[in-house]
């Protein structure tokens, strides 16, 4: 179930648009903010709040890659950009270093649910490549040492 706070936020989001369906994307974002992913229940609740079919919510959840539908992610979601600019400047080494440091493969979550590692396509930070995003925050001009420090700082 969504919290009252999220439901209130969904009501606010609805006001931005002439129809409720348009609020679907941001409503689902609000739902995801609660725990980092969305469940079947959340999607049903969003559908109910917007008076649309649950499958319409899942369509949105499944198309846009930042929604974590029914996939609980770790507390920290580390996404390393692997597109051309970052790759030219060594994104692969960064990914490898993180995999080694955490003992997991890309796409996996550490056993203590602390960190999930994924790759991402260009995040719009190419001038400061290589880069990664942890939850909402960008970390740029990465080096293997710098990454190691950042990871250590994640609780």
């Amino acid at each position: 179930m969504l919290t009252d706070k999220t439901l209130e936020e969904i009501e606010r989001i609805k006001k931005k648009y002439p129809n409720t369906k348009s609020a679907c994307m941001e409503a689902l974002q609000a739902a995801q903010r609660e725990k980092g992913h969305v469940t079947e229940c959340d999607m049903r609740a969003v559908a109910e709040a917007l008076d649309i079919e649950p499958v319409e919510v899942q369509e949105v959840g499944g198309f846009y890659t930042m929604y974590n539908v029914e996939k609980p992610k770790g507390r920290h979601h580390v996404q390393v950009c692997r597109n051309l600019s970052c790759s030219l400047l060594g994104a692969e080494h960064i990914i490898l270093a993180i995999e080694q440091e955490l003992g997991i493969k890309t796409g996996e979550t550490t056993e203590d649910d602390r960190i999930t590692l994924s790759t991402a396509e260009c995040l719009g930070s190419c001038g400061t490549a290589p880069m990664m995003q942890i939850n909402d925050e960008f970390h740029e001009d990465l080096t293997v040492d710098k990454v190691s420090d950042i990871l250590k700082g994640l609780k």
Partner: peptide
């Protein structure tokens, strides 16, 4: 939406 890889001006 600034998605074209290599682009970061709009940001």
């Amino acid at each position: 939406d600034e998605g074209e890889p290599g682009t970061f001006k709009d940001r």
